[in-house]
C-alpha cells in the first residue's frame, strides 16, 4: 500500500536575525501509511510544530518535498493546499484554538460547512461521540479545558478526514483529563481508521501509537515501535 504522506528531504530554515523559538528542519524524511497513528516526539521547540505546519500546508518549506496522497503539496498551489486542509485534514492544537465567538456546536458545524457537508445532525452526533451531549450551545469560555479539547476533536473528526494532525493535544490539560482526551482521540481514529500524527513530549503518548518518530537536530529518527519506557 502506498504511503499517504511522504516527506522527502524536507528543510525549513529561518534567517539569522529572525524569531527565536522555531527550530529548523534539516533534511527530514518520513512516510506515513493509511490508518497509522504516529507519535512525534521531541523536546519543546524541536520542530514538531514546524513539521505539522508544513504537512498541513500552512507553512512552506525552504527545500524539499511533501507528497500527500501522491500529490506534491507545493505544486498544489495555495488554493490546492487550502482544499487539502478543508477536506482532508483535521487539526488539533495544544491551546484548543476554538473560535471564541462560536458555540461548541457552531465550532464543529464550521468544519462541516467548510467541507461542503453542512449537515447539523453530523455535528450534533460528533459532539455526542466525544461525550459532550447537551453542551452544544456553550461558548468555549464556558467549557473546561478538557471539554474544549473534546470540541476540537469533534471538529476534527466530524468531516472524516484522511489525516489528523494533533499538536500537543494534552499539553494544556491535567494528567487525568489528558489521559481521557488522549484515549478518546485514539479511539475515534481507530474506529474510523483515520491516520494521525500526534506531536507530544509526554510519555503517555507512546502507548497508543503504532509508530514513534523523534526529531533530532532537525532530522526525523525512527524509533522502535511502542515500548514502554521513560524518555
Amino acid at each position: 500500500m502506498d504511503p499517504i504522506i511522504r516527506v522527502i528531504d524536507l528543510w525549513k530554515e529561518y534567517p539569522t536575525d529572525g524569531d527565536k523559538g522555531t527550530a529548523a528542519l534539516r533534511g527530514a524524511r518520513l512516510e506515513v501509511r493509511s490508518g497509522e497513528i504516529i507519535a512525534l516526539l521531541g523536546k519543546s521547540g524541536s520542530g514538531k510544530t514546524t513539521l505539522l505546519n508544513l504537512l498541513a500546508g500552512i507553512d512552506r518549506p525552504t527545500k524539499g518535498r511533501i507528497e500527500v496522497e501522491g500529490r506534491d503539496l507545493e505544486a498544489m498551489g495555495e488554493k490546492g493546499r487550502t482544499q487539502w486542509r478543508r477536506l482532508r485534514l483535521g487539526f488539533i492544537f495544544q491551546f484548543f484554538n476554538l473560535l471564541p465567538t462560536l458555540t461548541a456546536f457552531e465550532n464543529v458545524f464550521l468544519s462541516l460547512e467548510l467541507a461542503g457537508r453542512p449537515d447539523p445532525q453530523l455535528a450534533v452526533q460528533a459532539l455526542r461521540d466525544v461525550g459532550l451531549e447537551g453542551k452544544d450551545h456553550r461558548y468555549p469560555h464556558e467549557l473546561s479545558g478538557g471539554e474544549q479539547q473534546r470540541v476540537a476533536i469533534a471538529r476534527a473528526i466530524v468531516k472524516q478526514p484522511l489525516l489528523i494532525l494533533a499538536d500537543e493535544p494534552t499539553g494544556n490539560l491535567d494528567t487525568q483529563t489528558g489521559r481521557q482526551v488522549l484515549d478518546l482521540l485514539v479511539e475515534q481514529c481507530r474506529r474510523a481508521s483515520t491516520t494521525m500524527i500526534m506531536a507530544s513530549h509526554a510519555a503517555s503518548t507512546r502507548r497508543c501509537c503504532d509508530r514513534i518518530v523523534r526529531i533530532v537536530d532537525g532530522a526525523i529518527v525512527e524509533e522502535a515501535p511502542a515500548v514502554d519506557f521513560e524518555p
Partner: peptide
C-alpha cells in the same frame, strides 16, 4: 489574526 490563523488551518480560503 488568531482566529484568521485558526480558520486558515481549518481550510478557509483567504
Amino acid at each position: 489574526k488568531k482566529d484568521a490563523g485558526i480558520l486558515r488551518s481549518l481550510g478557509a480560503y483567504r
